[in-house]
Amino acid sequence: MQVSIYRYNPDTDEAPYMQDVDVDIPEGRDLMVLDVLEMMKASDPSISYRRSCREGVCGSDGVNMNGRNGLACITPLSEVVKKKKRLVLRPLPGLPVIRDLVVDMTQFFRQYEKIQPYLQNDTPPPAQERLQSPEDRDKLDGLYECILCACCSTACPSFWWNPDKFIGPAGLLQAYRFLADSRDTATAERLAELDDPFSVFRCRGIMNCVSVCPKGLNPTRAIGHIKHMLLQQGT
């Protein structure tokens, strides 16, 4: 199978280019895209990409496969190649490329920092732990599972245009995770930080984030909840 991979080494290359590589795929097996990358790296060790757990937990190997963001380790070849018989691998779009498929995620994590992703509670801590009813705990389902792979934010045009101002779907999913947490008491302050024309309201609801999330989460719904909370607080 022919694999076209984005190559760029800032030390030696003047500009990025696509390199075509023929990879022998074993018959009768549906490899993951990460397996293909490993095979390519075995023959050309200069190919660079991030990977760690290889089972969709760490979120390291977010890449663009045939135009669609996803985790290389849990994406079967059959899902992305289909009839084209050709695999095109590019880095996650919109972020600066460090080398080959490795991107600089500083901007992404800067937005994540903005939403203060930790529990804030100004009441005296109880002797053991802050309790939560099962119903309140259920509200966090579909929010806490995010692994920060950046597949969603880098599939979002609003994040491409304003990565320094728009929080992005990943950050906003986590913002709502703490807004929805019954143990967090900083709701008003969190909402006040989001009430500007960019942080939340640049989301146009095109749902690219939902389409690509490898964990099956729904950032667009979380963003809708944030807008609803802002409306309730502001009107």
Partner: peptide, 18 residues
């Protein structure tokens, strides 16, 4: 919060409602 001097109301929520 991101500030901006040129949006209609400087508030994302107010612009959204308007």
């Amino acid at each position: 919060m991101v500030t901006n001097a040129t949006s209609l109301t400087r508030s994302g929520l107010s612009d959204f409602i308007i």
